[in-house]
């Protein structure tokens, strides 16, 4: 009996000590983790737009985040956009045919928008009771001196093993500026090659029309094209080679044709859906004379 008491006491002390160590580790690292994630995100975005630490983004450029929600009530569904206006944020609700249902200013701080939980709560309040909102995706509109120069699109689709998460940069005509693979679980040495330059960069420069029926071909990648895609040769020569192969389909990865296909279909889907939606959104914005920040 005495034994049990000492055992309980000592176990409790051990647990408390352990909890203290873990708790403090969590508090110390959590801030750094968030900061690093943010820095990493920025790096990916700038890299897609062709900027890096050596070539910083000019001051005239600005990134505007736009969030899309699906608003569901008892009878129907609608699409809600949380977008930055000239003064503060706006929540714009469109019905399935693209007609404006609602247009409300949102009182939310610039920093609070970045936090998913806070943002979802505010959007839920704006949508009102009886309607449920679910976050769909986010888009970043890049402007230079007020002119739109690019869009950054987030996306996730099925891969060979699990999901593949990507970020895409497209120009205002929906030609692809760049593709970045953010997460995947493909086999190393096979499907994992999708994150290599020689695969990703094949998408670069494909126009919207080309993209619509872009296919994957099971042919060996020509060596000069490979070198140009990997950036192993001088920029001027590389540009010439890239132009030569510009209208080709995507060369499948050796031993990973299915992974290549999934990426191709996924990228096509993301761009096509975005082009469709942006068209509707722009019409609505013009109709309502809403001054968006972009």
């Amino acid at each position: 009996m005495k034994d049990i008491l000492t055992i309980i006491f000592r176990l409790t002390v051990t647990c408390i000590l352990a909890a203290m160590v873990m708790g403090s580790a969590f508090i110390i690292t959590n801030k750094a983790k968030k900061h690093n994630e943010h820095v990493n995100e920025q790096k990916v975005r700038y890299a897609l737009l062709g900027y890096s630490a050596a070539q910083p983004i000019p001051d005239s450029m600005a990134l505007h985040e736009m969030y899309r929600y699906v608003v569901t009530d008892k009878e129907s569904q609608a699409i809600g956009y949380l977008l930055p206006g000239k003064e503060g944020f706006i929540f714009l609700t469109l019905d399935m045919e693209g007609k404006v249902i609602d247009n409300k200013p949102v009182d939310i701080a610039e920093s609070a928008v970045l936090e998913k939980d806070l943002r979802d709560k505010v959007v839920q309040e704006i949508a009102g009771a009886g309607r449920s909102v679910t976050f769909a995706d986010q888009t970043i509109v890049v402007t230079n001196n007020g002119e739109r120069v690019a869009y950054l699109l987030d996306g996730k689709f099925t891969g060979f093993k699990t999901f593949i998460g990507v970020m895409l940069a497209v120009d205002p005509k929906f030609s692809i500026l760049g593709l970045e693979i953010l997460e995947h679980e493909e086999d190393p040495g096979l499907g994992a090659e999708i994150e290599r330059d020689y695969f990703r960069n094949q998408f670069k420069g494909k126009t919207f029309d080309q993209l619509k029926d872009l296919d994957v071909v099971k042919e060996p990648l020509p060596d000069e094209y490979f070198q140009a895609l990997e950036g192993n040769i001088a920029a001027a020569d590389a540009a010439e080679i890239l132009a030569k192969y510009g209208d080709r389909d995507i060369y499948a990865l050796t031993g990973a044709t299915i992974s290549s296909r999934y990426v191709n279909t996924g990228v096509k889907g993301i761009v096509k859906k975005f082009a469709y939606r942006l068209n509707i959104l722009d019409t609505a914005l013009a109709d309502q004379k809403i001054k968006a920040a972009f």
């Binding site: 352990a18 160590v21 873990m22 580790a25 690292t29 959590n30 750094a32 983790k33 690093n36 994630e37």
Partner: peptide
């Protein structure tokens, strides 16, 4: 488990 949690959190934060 405690020390694994510590290194796990630290790696996730500093070397993502």
């Amino acid at each position: 488990a405690t020390w694994v949690t510590v290194i796990d959190l630290a790696l996730a934060a500093y070397l993502p």
